[in-house]
């Protein structure tokens, strides 16, 4: 890894000065005590997934417990969230996709809360792990594919047969369409995990430069404020990315759902 070799170089140059471990934050370890990570071990990842569910419950269940016609602040955020995703499902996938709205809402709420909670200092971000996002993406992919065949039968294959293209081109296009269809879960999952991982790693790299002032006053006066500024800027960007990636994941799910419900171009 580039960052790691950078860390080693820096460590070697500055004796035991700056310490670069940008990837350590992604290590999964038991939440209580030490030991190996088994399948059912309650890990830091599990903890933040549970926190995600609790935070989502706090917003969407406790926040709406007033059931007031004139909403409180928290209730209006919950309503905004509901309306945002419901409108997205309706606009992108169509009215007949509304039965799947709770499923899409679950994905969105899980991802956005995991992303935002992961931005808390010291937190673990479950969505920065490809294992997590791959399951999310595969769940969408399998659901959509199975549903496409159940709803349309063999007609679902019409998705790959571009009837608006000239006849000789259609087999070639069909091949491309099939490949792109199977690449969907890969790009769907790596986009989210990659964005979350990259931002967090960059913040850590900048953070490793911050103690420069303790090593050399002259260089530190320049480097330390710059690195703190950079951390702040990247953090602001990450806040944006945390929302945008949840949004992108959700809207792509809606697009795939639309393909399954209406496979004809």
């Amino acid at each position: 890894m580039a960052s790691e070799s950078l860390g080693m170089e820096a460590g070697a140059e500055k004796s035991d000065g700056l310490v670069f471990h940008p990837m350590d934050q992604f290590i999964v370890k038991p939440f209580f005590g030490e030991g190996a990570v088994g399948t059912f071990t309650f890990t830091n990842s599990s903890f933040w997934m549970v926190m995600t569910v609790l935070a989502a419950t706090a917003l969407l269940v406790l926040g709406t417990s007033g059931r007031s016609v004139i909403p409180s602040r928290i209730q209006s955020i919950a309503e905004l969230c509901y309306g945002f995703i419901r409108k997205m499902v309706e606009d992108v996938a169509g009215k007949d996709a509304l039965p799947y709205f709770p499923y899409i809402m679950t994905l969105f709420v899980f991802i956005i809360f995991a992303n935002f909670l992961g931005l808390l200092p010291g937190a673990f971000t479950p969505t920065s792990h490809i294992a997590v996002t791959a399951i999310l993406a595969m769940a969408v992919f399998l659901t959509v594919t199975v549903m496409g065949f159940v709803k349309n039968g063999a007609g679902f294959l019409g998705l790959f047969w571009v009837s608006s293209a000239p006849l000789p081109l259609r087999p070639v296009l069909a091949l491309i369409e099939v490949i792109s269809y199977f690449v969907r879960p890969v790009s769907h999952s790596i986009r989210l995990a990659g964005n979350m991982m990259a931002g967090h790693a960059v913040i850590k790299v900048f953070a490793a430069f911050a103690p420069m002032i303790l090593l050399s006053t002259g260089l530190g006066l320049l480097v330390t404020p710059l690195s703190i500024l950079a951390i702040t800027a990247v953090y602001a960007l990450e806040v944006l990315v945390a929302f945008i990636q949840a949004y992108v994941f959700t809207i792509l799910t809606c697009v795939y759902l639309k393909d399954a419900l209406h496979p004809h171009h």
């Binding site: 399948t39 890990t43 997934m49 969407l60 269940v61 679950t106 709420v109 899980f110 479950p126």
Partner: peptide, 25 residues
């Protein structure tokens, strides 16, 4: 670590799905 994450992800997702579809939504 993947098995662990997948297990907890499925567990939390199912819980969240039921919380949302039965209560919140």
């Amino acid at each position: 670590w993947m098995g662990n994450q997948i297990f907890w992800l499925l567990l939390t997702l199912v819980v969240l799905y039921f919380v949302l579809s039965r209560v919140a939504l």
